[in-house]
């Protein structure tokens, strides 16, 4: 942030931060805000945890990873969910507000590239996917499909999914100007399921159960093996994500303002423990390796 004339604003933010920094008083309320990808699993965590700990209230809202981290920096939330790591400038902004941001890796997610079920294309290399999204491949013919224009569906720039895909698939090139930005991954799924020439991307869990969609296998390079983020049983392919053979995977993070203590610490420990990780599995995300592999139902 290159601001000069907003010192008053910063002071106000600091004041707000110092007021809301100790929400863990009577009745313990924890607010969680951020990634839309994580909102389903975060809500389930909160529900299950509150069942076991009726004295704690947990409020979960989405809005995007950027929104969540901005709220953490401004002191308006206890925890931030993010599907991308915090940026240096966000950490700096937090430091300016006297907040030391602490990171927790709470789950993993394979990002799927998805097309309409009517599309004959079965697999892409990472490079092809990147060239499609950055506008250098514009026809399905160029990747072994029909002679049709590719319709690209993307996400808003505040989404962690957008940033992750840009860094790891587009190799930091810009998205093509005609890439349509959807307000959420479920909107991407909806759009791709209705458009035979469409391509979309997002967390595997959003696409796995929709029969009108086809999840593409991804190759690391021309010679690599085409690997699906889904296993033969239709569930996310843990091993491929853990050992990195499925190349588009990421951690899902929870950030706290300062080292968590009291009820917040207990909640985070529970998320990282067997019960929290079992919920991760049930929501078709991938548990963090070593925490609770193979647990669940």
């Amino acid at each position: 942030m290159r601001c000069k004339g907003t010192r008053g604003l910063a002071a106000a933010m600091l004041l707000a931060a110092s007021v809301s920094m100790q929400p863990v008083l009577a009745g313990d309320t924890i607010t969680v805000k951020g990634s839309d990808t994580m909102v389903i699993v975060a809500q389930r965590w909160a529900e299950e945890y509150m069942k076991a700990h009726p004295d704690v209230t947990i409020q979960v809202t989405g809005g995007g990873s950027g929104t969540g981290i901005a709220a953490l920096v401004n002191g308006t939330t206890t925890l931030a969910n993010s599907s991308r790591p915090i940026k240096g400038e966000e950490r700096d902004a937090a430091r300016k507000n006297k907040i030391d941001v602490v990171e927790f890796r709470t789950a993993m997610d394979g990002l799927a590239v998805v097309v309409n079920a009517a599309n004959p294309v079965e697999h892409l290399t990472i490079k092809q996917a990147g060239m499609i999204y950055s506008g250098y491949i514009n026809n399905w013919k160029q990747v072994g499909g029909p002679d049709k224009k590719i319709i690209r569906y993307s996400r808003e720039s505040n989404s962690g999914t957008y940033v992750f895909f840009k860094e790891h698939v587009l190799m930091n090139r810009d998205y093509a100007a005609d890439a349509q930005t959807m307000p959420g991954t479920s909107a991407v799924a909806e759009a791709v399921s209705k458009d035979p020439n469409a391509i979309g991307y997002g967390g595997v869990a959003y696409f796995a159960t929709n029969p009108k969609l086809k999840i593409l296998k991804i190759k690391k390079d021309d010679k690599g093996e085409a690997i699906s983020p889904l296993g033969a049983d239709g569930k996310p392919n843990y091993q491929a994500v853990w050992d990195g053979s499925y190349p588009i995977a990421r951690y899902l993070y929870v950030y706290s303002a300062g080292q968590p203590a009291g009820a917040v610490k207990a909640y985070l420990d529970w998320i990282l423990g067997p019960e929290g990780q079992a919920i991760v599995e049930r929501m078709e995300y991938i548990p963090v390796k070593g925490s609770a592999p193979g647990a669940g139902n």
């Binding site: 290159r2 604003l9 505040n158």
Partner: peptide
Amino acid sequence: AAELGAVPQGGE
């Protein structure tokens, strides 16, 4: 509407 909610206040 899509972007203002997620950008740091006072940034570019």
